[in-house]
Structure formats: C-alpha cells, structure tokens
Design a protein around this nucleic acid. Structure first.
Lengths: 252, 252
DNA sequence: CGGTCGGTTGAAACTGATCAACAAGGGTGG
DNA sequence: CCACCCTTGTTGATCAGTTTCAACCGACCG
C-alpha cells in the first residue's frame, strides 16, 4: 500500500523536498488538545478502535489516512468516511464508538483520554465551540454523502469522490494536479456504495475520456477538473455533451 | 395530508382522549432554550428555512414532523432526515443552513436566535454539552443512513425505516402497534434513495406477507415486528425462510 | 518460481428505475 | 350538493444500470 505522504513511508526516503504541510485545513492555531494528548503511531491496516467499544479516547490524525467503517451482520461494509490529517476521530460524547477506525496508511495520531477531553470541554469554551464546529462540518459532509449514495449514479459518485480527495490534498480543484489515492478500490467502493468492479470500470471511462490519467492505480492526475466537476453534479452524459471536448469522447 | 396527531388537525376534532405526549424522548427536563425561544407554528408544506440561507436561528420541534432536504441542480432530491418532536433543527454553528426544512404536518416550534443560542453556549456548559450530545446522536444516525443507502436492498431499507418510525413514535418495537406515516410516499422514497413506485411495491409485499396492515396509506400496523426486524438486517429472502411463517408467504 | 492479492475486463443476471395506465380521495367551483 | 379535477398511491411492462460470476494480468512476497 502506498503511503500518503513521502515522509510517512519508511521504505523510500526520496530526496523530494518535504513540501509545505499538505493540509493544515482545520488547525490554524495550536490545539488545546496538544497539552493533554499523547502521540501515537499506527501501522497500515491496524485497528484503532472498534464499533461498540467503550469510547475511552479521542484521536486526532496528524499524518496518514484512516477509514471509518460500519458493518452489517452478513459482512456488507460501509465506509462512512476517510479521516485525513486534521480530522478528529472518536466523537467527544457517545458512550461507545459509533464506528470502527482502521489505519489505511501508516499514521501518526494524538490520543486524548475521554476524561481529559471532558475536562477540556468544561474549562475551555473555545475548545467546546471548536468541537461543535467540527461536528457541524462532519454532519454537513454526512448529508452530502447521503445525497451521493441515495441519488447519484456511479460516474457522478466517483467524480465527486475524486474532487473531494483533491480538495483534501489541498490542491485548487481548477488546477491539473497529481494526487494520491491511499485507499484500495474496495475501500472506494464501500465508501461510494458500489462494487470494486464498477469503480474500476468508471475509472477506466474517465481515463479513456481523457479526464484523468492513472500512472499507477493509487496515483491519479486530474487533467480536466472542470469536466470532472460537471460529471459530479450533472452526470456523464450531459457533462461531455455540453462542453467543448477537444481530445477524447466518452466511450459507449 | 393527514396530520400527525389528532389534536393538530383542525378539521376533525375527534372525541379521542388526548393520549399521553407521544414522544418526549430527549427533553427529560425543561430546556434552557425555553427561556430565550419564542413559540411559532408552521402549516403543512411551509418552508422553515432553506439551504444556503444565513443561519439566523435554531428551531426545536415541539409538535408535528419536518423534513430536511438537499437538492441537486437537476431537481433530484434527498431527504437527509425527518425531525420529530424533540429534534433540534438549525445546526448551532454553520454560517448558513446546510439543508432546507419543510413542515410535513402542521407544526409547533420553538425558535431561538443565533445570538441567543451563542450566548447560551457560552454561559451554560450543560447546554453546550447537550448540543454536543444531540449532534453526536445525529451523526450516528447519519452513519446508519449511509449504511442503509450504500448497502441495503429496497426491502431492507423500507423495513428499517418502518422500525425507525415505530421507535420514534415511542412504541416498543416488539409490540404490534399502529402508527402514523405523516410523510408521503415520495418523501419516503427520497429518504430511502428509491422511487415512489419501489416504495409502494415493497409496502405491498410486506402487506401480502402479513408483516404489516395498511388501513390507509398513511397509517400502518406492524403485525410481525420481529420479522420486520429480520428483513431490515438480513434481507427479505432469509428472513422469511428462517422463521416459521404461519399465515402468508413472500410473493414471488 | 509459484502463490496471493489487488486491479481490470468481459458476459450474464438481476434489482430497481422508467414509462404508462388506472383507482381512490379530497377539494373546489358550479 | 354534486361533478369535476388534481393529487397521491398502486400496479403492470419494459428498460437500464449495476451487480454478480468468471477469467486474467501484473506486482509483490515468500
């Protein structure tokens, strides 16, 4: 599994300049969490906590990517989210964790005990406000995802997902950019409510239409972000008909 | 549209005894919101606020049912939730509302201005904690819904939905109970990521299998709650094969 | 070098959507 | 008060998108 950031991969320490922090989206200032949190690392595939476990701690991802899963008794899996650096994991409230968290890449985390977080919430109004804001954002993202799962076609789902990852990687969506997909096709499928085969097929269509390039399955370059945007919200058909496509046509 | 509670329907004031408050689920004690909130009513179909509007206020539903919607540019609609009495509507944080809220039945609400809520959050740690708990619950519900939309079949979705409504109506799920479905089939479909036709067909299947009765389209009686539960999490096929069905078989 | 895993591609099957018709209420206006 | 209309829900027939089943390929690993 490819690591998200070059620096987080112990196997290849390339001479690449450690480019400016990939995504400091949320934590503009030092978090009060820093004082009470202990650093922790997780290997790829490692389970941080499981759905139903007593919610003993709260995590902040500082490096790597984590998947949040729910399972059905018969094994069907839904990934309810991917946690990129800056994301906060155990909800600050529930008695038990609402989902399972597994590291996709090697990860670095900050871990704070439930009681410490409780004390922070009591004493630090600003921290409490920020937690509310974080949950508010998550709730909004969850609603986006419900719209995606309930009403979008496969092509729209994949396009939306790729644009979301591009945004998470801190790249302007209008700029042709290469980005990492640290998660497997199965993870993407379970996130988008599809099968790996369908994800793969739709990815191929995007490639053949000249919208993206795939140097490797885990690395993707968005050639036509505005077209991808159109596919995300209007469907493949209209998107490729209404725009002046220069190089390639949509297959079948 | 049938009203949720007999008392909220001005057209027929039946001699029914006004049975004990249907659902005081969340507000065990008087909410601090009471002090700063002003009462308000909404007619069925009325829009309380729209996605994108500046989030000027927070609402608490005290009577009736509200639907929370998101729209796609081409008109596809997703209902991200139904707000029953006790639910809190505008998120306490975002700059703008994340969804559109429309009254399904006649509603009674409490409305508190954004600034008043902000002051409450500052001064009243208990209130802030409760808001966090409310959002935590909503987030958990949102994840359930993502699993439903991404991985469940039509029959499982409808069964899950009916059980959820039964729970909201405060009835023990194991008890054969009659309950109101104040929302239209279209609303149910947009909530479950299906079409009205599919909802209708699956409802018919449940009726023909003897799992439920439908005195009217908006009123449903669950005859076999445990069977419905099984359909919700294991699919229709296994559910009706593994249990000793006495009266009716699953059609086709 | 064989085995396994993740990804891709092909063909067939199936679930749910779409298109269409119809029935039952409920409300409105004559 | 009744006729009409419009909305909502139901049912049928067909269609299409996605899944399922299967094969294959390449990379990585023991």
């Amino acid at each position: 599994m490819l690591a998200l950031n070059a620096a987080s991969s112990p196997t290849r320490f390339s001479p690449l300049p450690p480019r400016a922090q990939p995504v400091p989206v949320r934590r503009a200032v030092a978090s009060p969490l820093d004082a009470v949190a202990t650093p922790q690392t997780a290997k790829a595939g490692q389970v941080l906590f499981q759905e139903g476990d007593p919610a003993a701690a709260l995590f902040e991802v500082t490096k790597g990517v984590v998947r949040l899963c729910r399972m059905m008794p018969d094994g069907r899996r839904s990934i309810t989210g991917f946690a990129f650096p800056g994301a906060i994991l155990g909800l600050p409230i529930g008695e038990v964790f609402a989902y399972t968290a597994e590291a996709i890449t090697g990860c670095e985390l900050r871990r704070a005990t439930r009681s410490a977080v409780g004390r922070l919430l009591e004493s630090n109004a600003d921290f409490a406000r920020r937690m509310l804001a974080v949950m508010s954002d998550e709730l909004s993202a969850a609603q986006d995802q419900m719209l995606l799962l309930g009403r979008k076609h496969a092509a729209e789902r994949l396009a939306s997902f790729l644009l979301w990852v591009a945004r998470k990687n801190g790249r302007a969506s209008c700029e042709a950019s290469q980005l990492d997909l640290p998660m497997s096709r199965t993870d993407v499928a379970d996130y988008l409510g599809l099968t790996t085969e369908t994800v793969s097929r739709e990815m191929t269509k995007l490639r053949q239409a000249g919208v993206v390039t795939l140097p490797t399955p885990q690395r993707i370059k968005i050639l036509q972000p505005e077209l991808l945007q159109q596919i995300a919200e209007e469907g493949e058909a209209t998107a490729l008909h209404s725009s002046r496509v220069t190089t390639a046509r949509w297959p079948s």
